Amino acid sequence: MTEALRADGLQYAYAVVRDTGALDAALEGVHGVAGEPVRAVVHLGLAVVAGPVPAGEFDEGPLKERLEKLEWLERIARAHARVVDAAGADSGVVPVRLATVCRGEEGLRRMVETGRERFTEALDRLDGRVEWGVKVYAAAPPPAEPAAAPTAAVSGRDYLRRRRAERQASAERWGRSEDGARQVHDALCALAEQARLHPPQDGRISGASDRNVLNAAYLLPREESPAFAERVEELARSSAGVRLELTGPWVPYSFVAPFSEDTAGAPGGGGGGPGADRRGRSGV
């Protein structure tokens, strides 16, 4: 038996669900961050979705080094999200912090014991809920033509006045976009049970050329998703000067405080959840 498959070897934790006895079917054919089959480890009425991973890649030292590599981290985040989505397809699920690794199945059980109250509260609170993501973009102003240097016909004072007016117009444009984003957010908050504001996404990461002025997540009952999506479409049509992007529905990552398994024998723990780029994008 290889080190990665030993019951007392490193176990990568993905999520916690209630033990309903039906999880094995949902996880059939699902593979994790190291290509390993995942399974449920049951304890105290809950089940940790986990899989064995090799120490050469996921022990504390190697893991810390790899977490600094964006390409590796993105691959791990996407695999992590696939497992969580499979585990939560038909039931409530609490995602575990990305790159939480326990020592053996005993470490997974200690994680359940340590966080049982918090896991149970989150499962109760999020039962039947889904997360929708909405981004609002403001198109960048067209590039200004290079201002001509002052001539006899255009004094230095006139030149400076014109440049000041251009800067003011640009600032007003961004201000209107941010006002529009706030109006969108207020309208969607009226439909959602909870909302979370994330930092605007850097265009170098998203690939979007427009400026991101709102990056938000909204929690609502699954059955209210059609009405929410329809409202986003209405806002997209009526909001001038901005572009809306809707993604979802997703497992409610943004509404669970990431559980860090620091007290249950984990050799390492990574950053936050899988993040927005794990999701496919569908523009509205």
Rank of each mutant, 00 (worst) to 15 (best):
L220Q: 08
G35Y: 00
V33A: 12
E74K: 09
E36S: 08
R75P: 01
P199M: 01
A227L: 13
Y218K: 11
R237F: 10
E68G: 12
A195S: 15
P249K: 02
E3Y: 07
C189N: 12
A152R: 09
G272D: 13
E36L: 02
A240M: 07
A26M: 03
P200S: 09
E166W: 07
V41N: 04
A192D: 07
P143T: 15
A22V: 14
G270Q: 06
R222M: 05
A187F: 06
L219Y: 03
P142S: 05
A181W: 06
L191S: 04
P141N: 11
D24K: 04
S254C: 04
A208D: 13
M1F: 15
G115A: 12
G107V: 10
S170I: 12
T2D: 12
G269F: 13
F58W: 13
E60C: 13
L73K: 13
A148D: 07
A144I: 09
R110K: 14
D277F: 00
A34L: 05
P252L: 03
G61S: 10
A192P: 05
D85V: 11
A171Y: 07
G207H: 08
A192F: 00
V112T: 09
E117F: 01
D210N: 14
V136H: 03
E145D: 10
K135Q: 13
V42G: 02
S239A: 12
E166I: 10
S206F: 02
T114A: 08
Q183R: 15
S91P: 03
G92N: 10
M1I: 15
W72T: 11
G61W: 10
Y12W: 08
E166R: 14
E233Q: 11
M1P: 11
L98G: 01
E113G: 05
A99D: 12
D124K: 12
A47V: 02
G56N: 12
H198R: 00
F58Y: 13
C189T: 14
F255E: 09
R211L: 15
Q201M: 09
P143A: 14
R161W: 08
G88Y: 05
G61F: 12
Y218F: 14
Q168T: 14
G248I: 03
E193K: 01
L63S: 09
R222Q: 13
R125N: 07
A229V: 11
A266F: 10
L188Y: 05
R82M: 01
R109I: 10
T114Q: 07
A149R: 14
V84D: 05
E178G: 02
P52R: 09
V49T: 13
R157A: 10
N215F: 00
G45K: 04
A47S: 09
L46V: 06
G283P: 01
P143S: 13
L244S: 04
L214C: 05
A192M: 03
R97F: 02
E224W: 00
R163K: 15
A87M: 10
R204Y: 00
A99N: 13
S155G: 15
P143F: 01
E105L: 12
W132D: 06
G180E: 10
S254M: 00
W132H: 15
A149E: 15
T151M: 05
